[in-house]
Structure formats: C-alpha cells, structure tokens
C-alpha cells in the first residue's frame, strides 16, 4: 500500500516533469501540435481506462462521447453564439445524461455482447452526426470557432499546450485518486468477480453506471477541446475506427494503468505522424506494431516494462 502510494506520487511527479520539459525539447510547433493531440487523446484514454482497465467493461463506441462533445461545442458556439466554456459544460451535461441513460441496460451485458452493444451505440451516433446535415454539416464536417476563456483566447500552440498539459495532469490525478478509493477497489472487485463484489456489498450496476458516466465525461472534455483546437470537426471523429483507436491506446499502454493510458495515447498519436513520410506504409506499420506489442507484451507496455524493471 505504502509502496503503491509512493509509486503514484512518483508517477504524478514524473508526468509533471515530462509535461514541463516537453515543450522545450520539441524542435518546432509541428511537434507541439502532435503533443497537444496526444494530450487530448490521453485525457479520453485515462477515462476509458477507468472503464476498461479498472472495471473490466469494454467499450467499442467511446468515440461517440468524444464526437458528441466536439459537436455540441461546435454547434452551440458556431450556431448559437454560446461562450465556449458554457458550451463545453453543456456537452458534459448532455454526454453525462446520455451515458447514464444507456449505462444500466447496456452494462448488464458481458464480454462480446457488451462489445457489440457499445459498438452499435457508437456507430449510431456517428451515423446521426453524418446524416443530420443541417445541424452538423454532414459527412464533410463543420468549422468550430476558437476557444475563449474569460475573454482570453489561446493565441498559439504554446498556450494550447499549457491548457492541455494542465488538464491532462488533473485528469491523471483524479483517476489515480479514484483508483485507490473504496470506489476504485469496488471497480476492480467487480472486474474480478461480480458475484463476489456484490456479496461484499458493492452495488455492481451502480458502480458500472458511475464509471461509464465518468469515462464519457473524460471523452466529452477531450472532444470539446479538440473541436476548438482543430477548428474543424468531422463525424469520422465519432466513428468506429476512432473508438477502436482509443481502446487500442488503452490496451497498448497497459490495462488498469493510468500512466499506461497516457503512454499508449502518446505513442499511437505520434506513430502515424512519424510514418507520415512513408505514407504508403503507415497503416501497415501501425497494424504490425499493434499486433507485435500485444503478442509479445500482452499486458501492455507500462505494466510489462514495470515488471521487467521490478525483476532487475
């Protein structure tokens, strides 16, 4: 327990250090841009890891919450003239309500059936976003006004990086706090054995709903910020392949590891950029790396490496 708390503090310290140093070692704003995108994905992945990693409930439709966050922000700011922060909060409320409404019936399902249901939910959301052309601009997407915080708009990549870095750190801090609270133990317990968790007094359905809503809120926040940062949003960001990418980031980094989610998001966001110069081979390399890591390090990067380090 004590060792674990130290590891948590050490991890948060290391994360802060990396986030602080990163902008000074990255050669130009192009890489800063990649870091910002990685940070936004990492926020969504930290939330998704609470659901998949800790509670053991797969979601193959999580990009839907990311997409709804992005589109609610886009529509309310561009169409209705709402202040971005208010639109972002509205997106959180809407996503939270949607997640809460579907959580009970869907999270009764297990394994592949749950995968199917979340996948279906995600695809339905993506199709609605693509088809409601008057509201969303359809498959071609829609422009999003810049973010404004109390009259101040982040002027460039550096300011955006600061915002994302702070939010990412807070997201990780909240996740780690939750993991070691009685709620976090209850999630890990129901992951291992639902009947034993319930017998110990854990309201399994309630905890599943809770973590599902939380993970949707993380994705919503990341989506809203992404919309403002990118200035443009398409339904593809809510689609199946995007959902798969989020799950892949979590699993690649390591299940039930908050820092693993961050590492997975960073790697999978940066890889395509690195391979972009060999455009033809980009997808091949991505697929091969995914398979390779899962075959040789099935527990994911961070837990596998931590284990190696511990054995030494």
């Amino acid at each position: 327990m004590i060792r674990r708390r130290e590891a948590r503090r050490g991890g948060l310290g290391a994360l802060a250090a990396v986030l602080l140093v990163l902008p000074f070692v990255l050669p130009n704003t192009y890489y800063l841009n990649v870091a910002i995108l990685a940070g936004l994905n990492a926020i969504a992945c930290i939330g998704l890891n609470l659901l998949i990693g800790y509670a053991g409930q797969i979601s193959l439709g999580h990009a839907a919450f990311f997409g709804i966050g992005a589109y609610v922000s886009a529509i309310l700011t561009a169409g209705q003239g709402w202040p971005p922060v208010l639109a972002l909060l509205a997106a959180l409320v809407l996503n939270g309500a949607l997640a809460f409404a579907v959580a009970r019936p869907i999270l009764r399902l297990r394994g592949h059936y749950l995968a199917m249901a979340t996948l279906g939910l995600g695809i339905i959301v993506a199709i609605v976003l693509a088809q409601e052309v008057r509201l969303t601009g359809g498959p071609d997407g829609m422009p999003v006004p810049p973010l404004v915080l109390l009259g101040w708009s982040p002027p460039g990549e550096a300011a955006w990086y600061g915002i994302v870095a702070v939010l990412l750190w807070i997201a990780a801090w909240l996740s780690l706090n939750l993991a070691r609270s009685p709620i976090g133990r209850a999630l890990a317990a129901l992951n291992a054995s639902e009947i034993a968790a319930a017998t110990a007094g854990v309201d399994v359905a309630r905890h599943k709903s809770l973590v599902f809503v939380l993970s949707a809120l993380y994705a919503s926040l990341a989506g809203s910020l992404f919309a403002h940062y990118a200035g443009f949003i398409t339904p593809a960001k809510a689609g199946f392949l995007q959902s798969v990418e989020l799950v892949t980031m979590v699993v690649l980094g390591g299940m039930a590891s908050t820092f693993g989610a961050v590492v997975g998001a960073a790697i999978l966001t940066a890889l395509p950029q690195i391979f972009a110069t060999f455009h033809e081979y980009e997808t091949i390399a991505l697929g091969a790396i995914l398979m390779g890591i899962m075959i040789f390090l099935p527990r994911g990067l961070v837990p596998s490496l931590a284990r190696l380090a511990g054995r030494r």
């Binding site: 798969v244 299940m255 091949i284 697929g287 995914l290 075959i295």
Partner: peptide
Amino acid sequence: AIAPAREASTVSLIVITIGASILLRGLAQL
C-alpha cells in the same frame, strides 16, 4: 498472430485481430 498469443486476455486478442485488420487494409492499399 493468434497461436503465439494463446494466453492473452480477450481484450488483447481483440486488439491483435484489430491490428491484423489494419495491417491487411494497409497491404490491400499498397
């Protein structure tokens, strides 16, 4: 890909086959 990962969890196996599908799409493109 599947036989060497016999011991992997369900989610890991899902990710392996997803990786394979990405790889095959990439190869088809190429």
